[in-house]
Nucleic acid binder design. Structure first.
Lengths: 348, 348
DNA sequence: TTGTAGGCGTTATCAT
DNA sequence: ATGATAACGCCTACAA
């Protein structure tokens, strides 16, 4: 692509490159007339500083790398949206990488990001990542890293996550309060952080109401695999009276499976998912949801990372930042009044 | 971030930088022993060439810029997915920019992309862009540009779009063949290319079956504005017997509005949208859809752009590439047999 | 087989 | 007030 450089301007105006540079950078002591000449010429020929040369000189790229399991996903695309908003407002660009839920690809991708000279890394771990030494090494080499959503406690950085525990607790409690007691939980792979947090929230709610935890009511599915029917079948064998699913995809898959089996959803099942889709209103019955604050998570993560890059210590880091979730109740078929929670009972 | 350079290796091994460079690049005539030494050292200290320095030298960044109206959008995130797949496989990275449906931001964003030294640009125009001189200028300066989805005939490049005409035609024809005659069309802003193509497909189908075109059955909505209810109301005044909507968002909004008004959708309205969501099965009644080949459009666009960047003339360019759409019929309530198409009648 | 020098675009430092 | 020079990391003629 045809571009004009400082050199071109210098040649055209019979000046040295340093003078031109000074004129453009609005530096001290420069002849106003010279400056006018230079800026006018630059304007006219649409001069733009070569950011690559600048990066080389300043040893930084003003680019932050974002690594997500996949882009074409409601949650992550919203998070990226939040990341971009903050990044752009602070003068950074965003390069996006996908790990495709693969540990190997995550490693390769992180390498590429580093080779690309990103100033920092924003990562949501792939579902098959348990070992994070590839990230710890980079940290040791002083690369700023912030994790979001799918985090690992083995890494000593800032984490930004949704309040998965609280969200799952609220969802489960809502189901209990509308009279369900055998709440099936259809969830994602057990070895990622959010799964465990959500399970803990689910169990805590059961415990609060004195409902025994039955692990046969839990089914773990893989990502990428769209066929949730067998898992739903396995859960149906346990005669549940509600479903609590851990994602949009699972919620939709679950509803589809129930519909296919002509199980009268409105009467027997309340379904709550972590979701962002506005279609929840249109399903029959409407699906209550726990909304993931994807945008805010992205914004917060970006802000933390850029602070770290620019050496602004926020005081409390490295630490964990939790963004609240919001529950939207859409199910209308209440059954019995809520049983009195056992724990509160005994503490009163 | 701590990094090792060729210089460091040269110093450590008492060699010149050029020798090290040659050794690493597997260049001709080099002492095998020296080479071994260098590669081993590089391996051990995890040497990675500085891509910024390379970009400066080679005067190209191996980055392609993608400008979309918004990322957090099913369609565009899938398209980006396709773009990335191709780009990465051919050694390019992707920087994503959002125009937020604003002409001004699109211009600013294009400038940033250029300043960032992208090797080429992949653009889906903002809905408020009618003038494309900002792009034509760049083209004149030899920047490879490929448009996808939202294109403009005022620009002399490769376009990649879905078969909007064909998709709209198929949708409308399907509605006609299931007995509808007053088909409302709820669509997006009139001044973007895809709107016109879809409208043309709609009209062509009406014409084929001798149904008069009634412009009161057409309503244009803005992007970003989630409230489609007034538009649905305006259409309902025309007592339509079907809806053909131009996007997911409109389809969902339309269904929601109908539901709110307790209009018995299953009996009176078939709704067909351009969509990608798998929830269509779960709506009542299930919504037939014309699927947008977002992934393929992204892939094709990226391929075209990279060919252009690398100077591989594909022979036929600049031209228009159309990716077929696929219709999925989910509506089950057939009414009357299809009326015999007038045009075919007269031509037989 | 290896080293030297120059250049990609920019800016900071040190002359003049 | 302006110019010359060096440096960021890498590669490649050209020289040795």
């Amino acid at each position: 692509m045809d571009t004009i450089t400082i050199k071109d301007i210098a040649r055209a105006l019979n000046l040295s490159t340093s003078t031109v540079s000074r004129a453009l950078r609005d530096s001290y002591e420069i002849n106003p007339e010279t400056k006018r000449l230079v800026t006018e010429y630059a304007e006219r020929f649409n001069y733009r500083p070569n950011s690559i040369a600048l990066s080389l000189k300043e040893n930084r790229s003003r680019v932050i790398g974002v690594i997500v399991p996949q882009i074409a996903n409601n949650y992550f695309s919203q998070a990226i949206n939040g990341i971009e908003a903050i990044a752009y407002s602070r003068g950074y660009y965003v390069i996006i990488f996908q790990s495709h839920e693969s540990y190997e690809r995550e490693i390769a991708t992180v390498q590429q990001a580093v080779a690309r000279k990103v100033d920092g890394l924003l990562i949501s771990l792939s579902s098959s990542t348990s070992d994070v030494t590839h990230l710890r090494e980079l940290q040791d080499r002083k690369l700023p890293i912030v994790l979001f959503d799918r985090v690992s406690k083995d890494l000593d950085t800032t984490f930004v996550t949704a309040d998965n525990f609280g969200g799952a607790f609220a969802a489960t409690e809502h189901l209990i309060q509308t009279g369900r007691r055998r709440i099936a939980h259809l969830t994602i792979p057990p070895y990622i952080s959010i799964t465990q947090e959500r399970l803990a929230g689910y169990r805590a709610a059961l415990e609060k109401y004195g409902i025994p935890y039955d692990e046969k009511l839990i089914q773990y599915t893989e990502f990428g695999q769209n066929d949730v029917e067998p898992f739903v079948d396995a859960l149906l064998d346990q005669s549940p009276d509600a479903f609590f699913t851990a994602s949009d995809r699972l919620a939709i898959g679950c509803l589809a499976a129930l519909k296919k089996r002509a199980i009268s959803i409105p009467e027997t099942v309340s379904l709550i998912g972590f979701t962002n889709t506005p279609v929840a209103d249109l399903l029959a019955p409407p699906m209550s949801t726990v909304e993931q604050p994807a945008l805010e998570i992205g914004q917060m993560a970006a802000e933390q990372l850029i602070n770290q890059i620019e050496g602004k210590q926020t005081g409390t880091q490295p630490g964990r930042i939790t963004i609240p979730t919001r529950m939207i109740v859409r199910a209308s078929s209440e059954r019995t009044p809520a049983p009195h929670p056992l724990r509160e009972q005994s503490s009163l």
